[in-house]
Design a protein around this nucleic acid. Structure first.
Lengths: 104, 104
DNA sequence: TGAACATATGATAATATATTCATATGAACA
DNA sequence: TGTTCATATGAATATATTATCATATGTTCA
């Protein structure tokens, strides 16, 4: 059966574009972008992130979960802590492009 | 006088990071990303954009205004129409990086 | 094993954001 | 000049998103 008149934009389906928007949502919130930027330094556990970005633990945990679902960060246990790290090289590139746009 | 304890994250002030998040918000909505993606083809007027992305004129106009404020598109009059175009090379790069992330 | 610690989670309230509808603006041209 | 066409805008509603609070989960180590 034919897909119910889903249109395409230069080869991208509507779902593709919705997925793209969802990805960029991850960068579109100040708490999340602070977390991502903080992880540029390398792995950090949740408490360290909270201190660095001055946000409380619950808010950070909620946002870390969103970032993990989006496959932008990964985590592993290390003793009592959970350590997070960037999980995609594109994260740095995307943020770098954003900075360039702003700096012009 | 000292700035009231604004912290920095790897050389970025809080305001810098808020600005980055605001930029990425432009890519984080399906209507706006459809518009941007539609303009990959080149200049288009508002009616053409509406048809391509199947959204009504008012919604498109509101979002074009947001994109213009963010300096991601520019516009000029051409006869009765207003023609829009991408106004920043980074737009294509940023979206391309997003696509790569998703395709993996 | 159980107390202490680190993180995660669910529900709620506060806030932000997008779409719609009605209408305004402003250029073109008869 | 006034009508028509294309776009922009304001206000209101609908929807999504986030931070917070309270508490649950799971580890470590005495």
């Amino acid at each position: 059966m034919p897909k119910k008149d889903e249109y395409k934009l230069r080869g991208m389906t509507e779902d593709d574009l919705l997925g793209l928007a969802d990805l960029f949502k991850m960068f579109a919130d100040s708490t999340r972008i602070k977390i991502l930027y903080d992880l540029f330094d390398g792995e950090k556990n949740v408490s360290e992130i909270c201190e660095d970005i001055e946000m409380n633990q619950s808010a950070v945990s909620h946002q870390l979960k969103a970032l993990k679902t989006a496959k932008l960060v990964r985590s592993r246990r290390e003793g009592k802590s959970i350590v997070y790290a960037l999980d995609d090289d594109h994260v740095k590139t995307i943020i770098a492009m954003g900075k360039e746009h702003i700096e012009e």
